[in-house]
């Protein structure tokens, strides 16, 4: 099973899959956009990340 970085969106693998994610919780509290979460984690990934095919 591939695991996405914890700041990134992914599909679940169970029905349902409960996850704990401190970064998402922070983004939710602050009502952050994806861009604002990017600014927060300062990732090294290129901007060419897929927009769609991110399923596990």
């Amino acid at each position: 099973m591939k695991t996405a970085p914890e700041h990134r969106t992914r599909f679940g693998v169970r029905h349902p899959e409960w996850i704990e994610n401190a970064l998402w919780a922070l983004a939710l509290r602050n009502e952050w956009s994806g861009y604002q979460l990017r600014q927060h984690v300062r990732p090294s990934e290129s901007s060419a990340a897929s927009r769609r095919d991110f399923s596990v």
């Binding site: 990134r8 998402w24 956009s33 994806g34 990340a49 991110f54």
Partner: peptide, 10 residues
Amino acid sequence: MPGPFWSWQR
């Protein structure tokens, strides 16, 4: 491939 950064602004 990695997905978008998670967002609550929806």
